[in-house]
Nucleic acid binder design. Structure first.
Lengths: 343, 343
DNA sequence: TTGTAGGCGTTATCAA
DNA sequence: TTGATAACGCCTACAA
């Protein structure tokens, strides 16, 4: 078994042609239009290829063809199950279009996002899907202006200069609180932060609108702000809730995402607070671990796969259709009721 | 704002040279050795670049240079937090070596794995890290033989024809059971499957060796086989456990991974079985959700980031060092004791 | 059916 | 300091 040394050149079509005793054009034909080559020579060429360990050079192919066969998704945080589900949806659409998907993880860093975008642009990928650290960053515009289709995923931009796919967070907030009102709760808290995140803001807005529509006094909807949407912050919020005197303590909590809700649930259980009898909990995202929690979590579900699939379709349209116009797609969330609110 | 039409050619160095009124070589110098160009012309060239929306063509660069600046990790399952942590470790090492990392997700499908490998090979990536569906698949050998460095991650091969990094699963199994023995348990069950997975097998082997070393009768270590390492299967196993008469029912369970353990925990809590008083639970992997469970989970921790970092270092050594020899690195796991066994 | 030639965009070498 | 040129590997006309 001969392994190529580091740095050694690999076999090219020319080498294959020489080994098979045919011309270079024939080798190319074997690769791209096998039917135009007689079976005999084709076999000979194929054999030469395996013998030499020939691997087609994609750079050369792409340079010549002017087009690549890949799509990219720059993820905000690959360790959040929400985004990997979105990625699966993208992958499905990419596969259907016979493109392959590469994933890049910016890990919530604008500079990493930048360098991924730059490289992908240089690689002339067919399109870039991105959940950006800052959806209003001008660097996204530059990429788009230079000609690479860009679609914003799970975020929206203030201006509408991009295609984007997102879920209606205001509606989601409304659904969550309406559900709690239906269950008879009159003291409710919203837990989430930081407040400048669009999603945190929108979900609260929805919550408030449902609250007001039910004729409740606005200040009976408490807001507990966290510094991040993590399990640890959820636990911490649970501790703060527990510190409120029983008579005034909320009987239900709506959390800005499932991680926070899981942390809060954990705090409740470990301190002997019964869920949902003493406190009901609603999460957001409906990640897999929500249904699998010790007390299965009521949560606002987003169509994650669909989000990804649609984003991929938009970027492909932009890449291939001259008459493309930007669209902002907004999906509708759905409440999934489970034990954490149903007793 | 002029956006390029789909299919339109983007500006090349030639266009930039023309616009700036310099030769093509000068543009290249601005790009690669800016110091060799007088400040005046450099500015002029830079301006032409932004005006034209010039983006360097990586295919051409790579074709000429013969080398790419990227590393790839073909993940088995991007939605398992374990693998995303490994990916973070790889990313750190890649960043340090000034390479960028692309992630591909085979989603446990051999054919998707194949096509990702093929494309990466054609793209002449510096190296491929892979957690394969089947570590003994010959297609990995072919990739390596043709010259792309390949390192196997979190798996080992029967022959030792690759570099690999993994964690000592036999030891991990031993640690888990020794911990349960220390806590005084004499009826223990191992839950995991399918049995043909190397990891499921090795962890059981370790469990048995610790069990035997303590002088316990071998058949007092029950084995409950699952068809996958998922939360749902864990719940199902919990139901099976509950069906065993109390006198013979295990007082402790060692699960082959955390997802199974979380499912089992969920079943226990929802059916009123106290953890750890009536049943103690040990998981494996120590994913973030383990510590965040309703009853924080005792688990066997693997050095996930280190696993990734080391794998990246090995593949880079193979890519650059002519004297490279294959190594199989085996890391040591560590037991993290929490409430699910500590009362 | 097979062979030949030109060019994709970039970089490095060499000459001016 | 700047400019011209060849080469990387592949693909597609076009010619034989």
């Amino acid at each position: 078994m001969s392994v190529r040394e580091p740095g050694a050149r690999s076999a090219s079509v020319k080498d294959v042609a020489a080994a098979a005793g045919v011309s270079l054009g024939t080798v190319s034909n074997v690769l791209n239009r096998p039917d135009r080559v007689s079976p005999g020579t084709r076999e000979r060429v194929l054999k030469a290829m395996t013998d030499l360990g020939f691997v087609r050079n994609e750079s050369a192919r792409q340079l010549r063809a002017g087009t690549s066969r890949t799509l990219a998704y720059v993820m905000l945080d690959a360790s959040n199950p929400f985004f990997t589900d979105v990625a699966d949806g993208i992958d499905a659409a990419a596969e259907a279009a016979d493109l392959s998907l590469v994933l890049c993880n910016s890990r919530d860093s604008a500079s990493r996002e930048q360098s991924h975008l730059a490289l992908l642009e240089q690689q002339r990928v067919q399109g870039i899907l991105v959940t950006p650290v800052d959806p209003d960053s001008p660097s996204l515009d530059e990429v788009a202006r230079r000609g690479t289709p860009v679609v914003v995923v799970d975020r929206t931009r203030a201006d509408q200069s991009f295609c984007s796919v997102a879920v209606d967070d205001v509606l989601g907030g409304r659904l969550a609180v309406e559900h709690l009102l239906d269950r008879g709760h009159t003291r409710v808290a919203y837990v989430g932060g930081p407040a400048h995140l669009g999603q945190v803001h929108d979900r609260l807005e929805g919550a408030r609108s449902a609250w007001a529509a039910a004729g409740h006094p606005e200040d009976a909807l408490a807001v507990i702000e966290t510094s991040a949407l993590t399990v640890a912050e959820g636990r911490e919020a649970g501790a703060r809730l527990a510190g409120i005197p029983t008579r005034r303590r909320p009987t239900a909590v709506f959390c800005a995402n499932d991680l926070v809700a899981l942390g809060l649930l954990q705090h409740a259980i470990s301190s002997g607070v019964r869920v949902p009898d003493e406190i009901a909990i609603v999460g957001y995202d409906d990640i897999e671990f929500a249904a699998a929690a010790a007390v299965p979590l009521t949560s606002v579900r987003q169509p994650r796969q669909l989000l990804g699939r649609t984003a991929a379709e938009l970027v492909l349209d932009e890449a291939t259709n001259v008459g493309h116009t930007h669209r902002q797609v907004l999906f509708t969330p759905e409440l999934v009721a489970r034990s954490s609110t149903l007793g």
